[in-house]
Design a protein around this nucleic acid. Sequence first.
DNA 1: TAAGATACATACCATTTGGTATGTTTTACG
DNA 2: CGTAAAACATACCAAATGGTATGTATCTTA
Lengths: 208, 208
Amino acid sequence: MTRTPRGEARALLLGAATDLIRRRGFAGTSVDDLCAAAGVTKGAFFHHFASKADLGVAVVRHWTETTGAMFAAHAYNAKPDPLDRVFAYLDLRRSLLVMPIPEFSCVAGTSVQETFLSHPAIRLAADASLRSGMAHVEAHLAEALALHPVADITAESLARLFQVAVQGGIVLAKAQDDPAPAREAFDHLERYLRLLFGRPATRGQDSA
Amino acid sequence: MTRTPRGEARALLLGAATDLIRRRGFAGTSVDDLCAAAGVTKGAFFHHFASKADLGVAVVRHWTETTGAMFAAHAYNAKPDPLDRVFAYLDLRRSLLVMPIPEFSCVAGTSVQETFLSHPAIRLAADASLRSGMAHVEAHLAEALALHPVADITAESLARLFQVAVQGGIVLAKAQDDPAPAREAFDHLERYLRLLFGRPATRGQDSA
DNA sequence: TAAGATACATACCATTTGGTATGTTTTACG
DNA sequence: CGTAAAACATACCAAATGGTATGTATCTTA
């Protein structure tokens, strides 16, 4: 039986925490659960994290970095038209919904629901995480608005609406045990954008 | 010191649970916490509820009934035009956002995030709760669509979008410690509806 | 190569957890 | 009135909880 190589305990714990928090939430996941899932001992846990709350902050930050890198690295960022990039981003988000629900649910969104009062540090990390996700779309939206201004609409405001659709979609998907409402939320968001920007769907390229 | 009158322990526990779950989540709230907040002993708790999970199901159901009654009783339901009722409902939801965040956050939405895998009964109750909320708007939306059909749009689908906006708005509000993103989500939703139904905002009656 | 320093593992602890066993008091009702 | 069943309260328990104390192996670096 291969011992877990030295120096990886922290990464293993962050990975396990990402998984378990998405399944059971922060309070619903014990330190022992984390250690067992990561295949490390409690000594390793408290060597790397001062407390469970400290781990919570670290996971949310780690989650922010990994997901941010994933979206930043994607091919659609090369599209010339900014609004095309926005729609491609929506396509990407829709494509993620084929995975099991825990795998597309959001660590930051789940954590902040339970910890926004009890663990301010986690709340702040979650806030930064959601803002980071918004910033990605906001950049494309700002360019699109520069090319085609829309009255009373800012890129930040629309970016926040994206996050609302993401987070709300996850809640509905969990409740219904079905990703359909999340997908549908993105469809409505796309339709809203097409109405705002005056760009009707091209036949065959809209929601498949 | 007045002893808590007989026969009210269950109601007190449901009230305390509603409050505490919105603040700390389901797993983050202990049975002792509940009893202390309700001013009741553990004996009373386990007399009325077989387990903590059982209490969870009961709170979500209780929450569904009370909020459902609140919306059903509201004055705007008497407006003649169904789309006016939809916008009035949005106004009502916006007006709720002046309360502290825990008081407008959703018991069902918060609970289902952490329990959708571990407690199927709670998940089902939360699903029913969210569906109940949707059904309310859906009725008005169906009438509005009957008067003014919109291509590829159903009342159910739009009602789900309302829930997505509600739940997503709560998540963002918690993360930012500010109800503004929730309000903004409703503003966008209203704008989307006005675009779909071809009813521009009347000067002075739109979002204040 | 000696010597910290880092990265773990093991064993343990006080407290909290959900839950139970067993009372006592109040109410419904024949 | 008597009696049974609710509606609680009190006391208790085994397990799980977050956290600590202390040990040991590995790595770095002078």
